[in-house]
């Protein structure tokens, strides 16, 4: 555990809670892509199956359980409790366009040909693109509420901080995980456009609006 990794995890947890709190307190899922949240739930369920057969640390276990339960709760709030407020008309990104390629990539790039390793690879690739329905929705509606922007910023920062963690680990431990690193770089690149808008607009007190 190094500082970058810890900051990455804090940022990840923060993102998850910002989203849950936003939906809960406003009693509304408006502007939130349920499809992205379903993809994230699939990511966590596929990646954290090792909860059943390997124990790494209490921190690791608690975080895994937290991400699984928070993402399930988010999906529940969007599709059940506050379903009436969910903006399904604008949430139209076809998730098979990210599910199928992630699955194919997992069959090509994996560390061993076992079910759990394939599921792990699949989850890494899927996570990289799971935000696409949400970004697509923001583009389609042309704007995002400030809290949604904070959520996206925290979520994007998490993988960017992981990249610093991987650089640090490479130099200090010689640790290198090509699948996670490549997917993590792609994931971070997807947020770059958003990061720019966040810094130039949201941080200056304006609403995030996408130019047509």
């Amino acid at each position: 555990m190094n500082l970058f990794r810890l900051m990455g995890d804090v940022s990840h947890v923060l993102a998850v809670f910002i989203l849950l709190a936003k939906i809960w307190r406003t009693r509304s899922a408006a502007g939130i892509s349920g499809r992205s949240q379903i993809l994230f739930t699939i990511v966590y369920l596929a990646r954290y199956m090792d909860l059943f057969f390997s124990f790494i640390s209490l921190y690791n276990t608690v975080m895994k359980l937290l991400f699984i339960s928070a993402s399930c709760a988010t999906v529940y709030l969007i599709y059940f409790k506050f379903r009436a407020t969910y903006d399904g008309n604008h949430d139209t990104f076809r998730i098979e366009f990210v599910l199928v390629p992630s699955l194919l990539l997992a069959f090509i790039f994996h560390y061993s040909m076992s079910f759990f390793e394939l599921a792990w690879s699949f989850s890494i690739f899927l996570e990289a693109v799971a935000i696409l329905p949400q970004l697509f929705m923001v583009t389609k509606t042309g704007e995002a509420e400030n809290i949604t922007s904070h959520y996206l910023f925290a979520l994007g920062s998490y993988r960017a901080l992981y990249i610093l963690n991987w650089i640090y680990r490479y130099y200090t431990e010689g640790h290198f995980d090509p699948i996670a690193v490549c997917a993590g770089i792609v994931q971070t690149i997807l947020y770059c456009d958003f990061f720019y808008l966040y810094v130039t607009k949201v941080l200056q007190g304006r609403k995030l609006q996408v130019l047509p």
Binding site: N60, H175, D177
Partner: peptide
């Protein structure tokens, strides 16, 4: 050991 390293991350 290397495997453990990888799976230590979230």
């Amino acid at each position: 050991d290397d495997d453990e390293d990888t799976k230590d991350e979230l």
